[in-house]
């Protein structure tokens, strides 16, 4: 223990164990997979991670608030469908490549709107966010089916699918967008009044109410943020695919929650940060990518991820065992 308290890096790792894990698997795959440690693959990991990662940023806010959002996968699909479909609306037929702009704007607005609906319902009805967003997950997916008629949409404008291949300097544009989003949400959470209130609302709701924080609108803002990020993720995913399928984003909510919990955010709220979440999504991203390179069938990734999730929970419990004061309950 002496060792841990003296070395600042080790002390930091003790508080963020997921980064220790990221480091270990990073070294492991660098040594054992030939194509792992090179610039192109590392960029690739960031791009692959960004889809889940963007949503996880929003989920961190919502979960620190003491809420949860199960509807993000469906929101992602709805936004992707709008982003691809609106481009081909007759109204924008003469806009050339500019037709992408209203499409993306509408898609992002749809995401914000879905988040706003969730947040408003949680605020006004007082029904648990788990139930509200579970309903929304079914409902928004229903909207996707209604809107698309269960068909896939394909982007007719090639500029749209080319976007995902663009680079800024040496960096893929998708990676840059993700990094900017990470920095922005980290700044929001750690530096701004809204961010600090996020901890207050989740850590002690009653205290927050008594201190005059308007808890309802506050939570609604965070739901709108996660809606926006899910929509952004959907738009970027559809540029990568050049299409939007109605089943896009299925089970993403589970991956996202897994990543956020791996990153140390508490389900009960009040605790967590973006650094941890970034570790969580990178852990998943590196595992998938590395195992893929080692040609391990994708099936094993599920088993390993599930086991890791449970193991992290178990270790967390071992290290913070004092909860009952030693009472055998």
């Amino acid at each position: 223990m002496q060792l841990f308290s003296e070395n600042p890096l080790l002390r930091w790792l003790m508080r963020n164990p997921i980064w220790g894990f990221v480091l270990i698997i990073f070294i492991f795959f660098s040594l054992s997979a030939d194509n792992f440690f090179n610039e192109r693959n590392l960029m690739n990991i960031v791009v692959q991670t960004s889809t889940i990662g963007l949503i996880a940023l929003g989920m961190t806010l919502v979960m620190i608030n003491g809420n949860i959002d199960l509807s993000v996968g469906a929101t992602l699909a709805l936004a992707a469908a709008f982003a691809v479909d609106v481009q081909s609306w007759a109204a924008f037929a003469t806009w050339g490549n500019w037709q992408i702009l209203p499409a993306v704007c509408i898609a992002l607005l749809v995401g914000i709107l879905m988040g706003a609906i969730n947040g408003f319902i949680v605020w006004k009805t007082g029904v648990d966010a788990f139930i509200v967003t579970l309903g929304a997950m079914l409902g928004i997916r229903g909207l996707v089916f209604v809107y698309t008629g269960e068909q896939s949409f394909y982007a007719m404008n090639f500029a749209y699918s080319d976007f995902s291949f663009m680079t800024i300097g040496p960096f893929p544009v998708l990676a840059v967008i993700f990094v900017i989003a990470v920095l922005a949400v980290h700044w929001l959470l750690s530096r701004t009044v809204h961010g600090r209130n996020t901890y207050a609302v989740g850590g002690n709701r009653e205290a927050a109410v008594n201190a005059g924080i308007r808890v309802g609108p506050h939570m609604m803002v965070n739901f709108m943020l996660i809606g926006f990020l899910a929509a952004l993720s959907g738009v970027l995913l559809s540029t990568q695919m050049g299409a939007a399928t109605p089943n896009l984003g299925r089970d993403y909510e589970l991956w996202v929650i897994t990543a956020v919990v791996l990153g140390g955010t508490k389900l009960t709220g009040g605790k967590g940060d973006i650094i941890g979440t970034l570790g969580g999504v990178l852990a998943i991203g590196i595992l998938r990518n590395g195992m893929n390179l080692m040609q391990v069938p994708a099936f094993y990734v599920y088993v390993i991820l599930g086991s890791i999730l449970i193991a992290v929970l178990f270790l967390d419990k071992r290290f913070n065992r004092a909860e009952n004061g030693g009472l055998r309950l």
Binding site: A200, A208, G270
Partner: peptide
């Protein structure tokens, strides 16, 4: 709020 600093708690809200 347990995870916040004393200062943040004093000026909560």
């Amino acid at each position: 709020v347990p995870e916040m600093s004393a200062a943040e708690n004093i000026y909560l809200g």
